[in-house]
Design a binder for these strands. Structure first.
Length: 620
DNA sequence: GTAGAACGCGCC
DNA sequence: AAAGGGCGCGTTCTAC
């Protein structure tokens, strides 16, 4: 099949009008939309000019490629709608060299791709300088320069494909194609509910802002300077930096919160503003059929996971728990650890209104939602990678938490969850929290996230106990750590079960200043660094184990997603191990679970399981 | 004036 | 010797 690289240059304005802020559909359907230049290159000939002057028939039946093909394809669709390009172009296959480069070298932009793969520097200055500039604003010389620049990009894109596409497996290309399809397809929005939420949230934020002592003095709501000044005025210490000292921050909040309501307010304001911005973004992007498109980045993380960015709206961080409001429109939170029944009672008594952002996503007419997640995929993969065959066998008849308790916590009884809920919970936090080398301090925080309070001594005992009774896991860390250290002065490569590789470039032993956690003093420490996605990172055994596990789990999920899309229904979007499906009414949760329970043939012996639920809207 | 660091907050 | 990680985006403030 002949391959044609296409590259559009379109009008943009960095701050007000750009794809990265607006997403593909909204950008293409704005009054300012102006694709003033199209370049094409088929490996022999290049062309540059107005898109409507292009001989589209000449690319019929070709594979169209582009760097960020999701964008160029959207532009083409926009042109089709305007009658300026023929329909067949968007029906034939497209593929994306930016996605290919993300897979091959953990980079996306054309500039970075050429830098890493071709060891050359190309300039994007001409394009960067076009912010806010119209084609007609350019003189003849500038227009020629622009054409030459754009042709060069089309040629670079084509060359990348020619040179490297055979290293991009079919499976990955299919995931890339599916990702582009999902982003364009988008989801249906409950528009009346969206409008209700926007209005309600606006009032909540207004009330909250009014309650801050420093906003009256003209300071910004979350200004750290203004907050520190207020603290000084009332004679309390300023809050510690949360990122550096979370416990200190929590202590500060719980100490002074009861006395000064504004202690919680800055954090709350951030959280609410974030939510409101998201709602407004969704509203801005509504298409005529009440759906919106979104962006998911194929291979957005170096482990291969997708990331949720790229267009100012992240579909991978919808709040799980709704926002609860009392009659005064203040945010309230249920006490931790309530049963479903008690939570319902709490809501009935205290909650005036709630805001559930996940409820905004609803099925299209005549379709239904099935929400499915892959059960404990990471600990299962870790057990597989470390050869814990006995544990994997036990999963045929019990949960991984019960199996772990039998293997490591001396459980000899029946169904653990029913017979000893506390032990079950203790097993769960260990399985989820200790597989990748976390220490006792961090483990206290992880446990707290599951409503389990641990003292330092308890945490230390659990962590050391876990390491003693799980030598396969600690050996796995050590093996990776040793192999990584031995790769100094070269690249470190880890083969994954699916056949692809994780690569850490240019491994180096370095001396860095590190804070000793007990003394608080900085000391010289040796660390082993390497380059990942053009950034130098410190890595060690536990972290490498985590990367490998995450990467392998992603591949398993990818297999399932392709099958689901092919056999079961539309996979609207996904968040690492859960997929929201929009299906025909006759499709059952069992159909979905059956697909997600299949073990890919390259990871024989890994038991996969899934839980699928029919839901009226996206939910936790 | 704008870019980017720093920080905080949302998810798995 | 010990060390959980992977993301994106909104706001504020500093540096250029």
């Amino acid at each position: 099949m002949r391959v044609v690289a296409l590259d559009f240059e379109t009008f943009f304005h960095k701050k007000e009008y750009s794809v990265s802020k607006m997403g593909n559909w909204r950008y293409v359907h704005d009054d300012q939309f102006d694709p003033y230049l199209l370049t094409a290159y088929d490996g022999a000939e290049s062309w540059a000019g107005r898109p409507e002057d292009f001989n589209w028939a000449s690319v019929e039946g070709d594979l169209c490629i582009a760097h960020n093909a999701g964008f160029d394809k959207s532009v083409t669709e926009g042109l089709v709608e305007l009658g300026r390009a023929p329909e067949f172009v968007v029906q034939q296959p497209w593929q994306c060299t930016a996605n290919m480069c993300a897979f091959l070298a953990d980079v996306r932009s054309l500039r970075d791709s050429i830098k890493v793969l071709e060891k050359r520097n190309i300039s994007k200055a001409i394009r960067d300088d076009m912010s806010g500039v119209q084609w007609k604003d350019l003189n003849a010389t500038e227009q020629t320069a622009m054409k030459e620049y754009a042709v060069r990009d089309a040629i670079e894109c084509h060359s990348l494909w020619t040179k490297y596409s055979d290293r991009w497996p079919e499976f990955e290309r299919n995931l890339s194609s599916l990702t582009m399809k999902q982003c364009r397809r988008g989801v249906r929005i409950n528009v009346p509910l969206l409008r209700e939420y926007i209005e309600l949230l606006g009032s909540v934020i207004f009330e909250l802002e009014r309650s801050l002592p420093w906003t009256a003095r003209g300071a910004k709501p979350t200004s750290p300077i203004a907050i520190a000044e207020e603290c000084a005025t009332v004679g309390i210490p300023a809050p510690p930096v949360k990122e550096d000292d979370e416990e200190g921050f929590d202590l500060w909040e719980s100490t002074y919160g009861p006395k000064f309501a504004w202690v919680y307010a800055a954090g709350q304001w951030r959280s609410l503003r974030k939510l409101l911005s998201k709602f407004q973004t969704i509203e801005d992007r509504l298409r005529p059929d009440d759906t919106i498109d979104f962006s998911l980045l194929y291979f957005g993380a170096h482990t291969g996971r997708w990331s949720g960015g790229g267009s100012g709206l992240n579909f991978q961080n919808f709040r799980k728990v709704p926002l609860f409001l009392n009659k005064k429109l203040q945010v309230i939170k249920p006490p931790t650890g309530l049963s479903a029944k008690l939570l319902a009672a709490w809501k009935a008594e205290y909650v005036f209104k709630s805001i559930d952002e996940r409820a905004l996503i609803i099925p299209r007419a005549g379709k239904k939602f099935i929400l499915a997640d892959l059960s404990q995929i990471e600990p299962r993969v870790l057990a597989w990678l470390t050869g814990n065959v006995e544990l994997l066998k036990m999963l045929k008849t019990m949960s991984i938490y019960e199996a772990f308790a039998r293997q490591n916590m001396g459980w000899r009884g029946g169904v653990l969850k029913k017979e000893d809920a506390d032990k079950y919970q203790m097993s769960k936090i260990q399985v989820l929290g200790l597989g990748f080398g976390c220490g006792w301090e961090k483990f206290i925080k992880i446990a707290a996230g599951y409503d389990v309070a641990l003292t330092p001594t308890e945490s230390q005992l659990i962590v050391s106990g876990f390491r003693e009774t799980n030598p396969r896991i600690t050996r796995f860390w050590a093996t990776l750590d040793n192999a990584y250290r031995k790769s100094t002065k070269s690249d470190f490569r880890i083969g994954l079960p699916s056949g692809r590789e994780l690569i850490y470039h240019d491994v180096r032993a370095e001396i860095r200043q590190k804070k000793n956690r007990t003394t608080g003093q900085f000391e010289s420490k040796q660390v082993i660094t390497s380059e990942v996605a053009l950034r130098r990172k410190e890595l060690y055994g536990g972290l490498l184990a985590e990367n490998v596990t995450q990467a392998a789990a992603r591949d398993v999920f990818g297999e399932h997603m392709l099958t689901l899309e092919e056999q079961t229904g539309d996979v609207l979007f996904h968040v690492h191990d859960e997929a929201l499906m929009e299906t025909e009414l006759e499709v059952t949760t069992q159909d979905v679970e059956a697909v997600m329970s299949v073990t890919p043939d390259w990871i024989e012996g890994l038991p996969c399981a899934a839980e699928a639920l029919e839901v009226p809207h996206y939910t936790k």
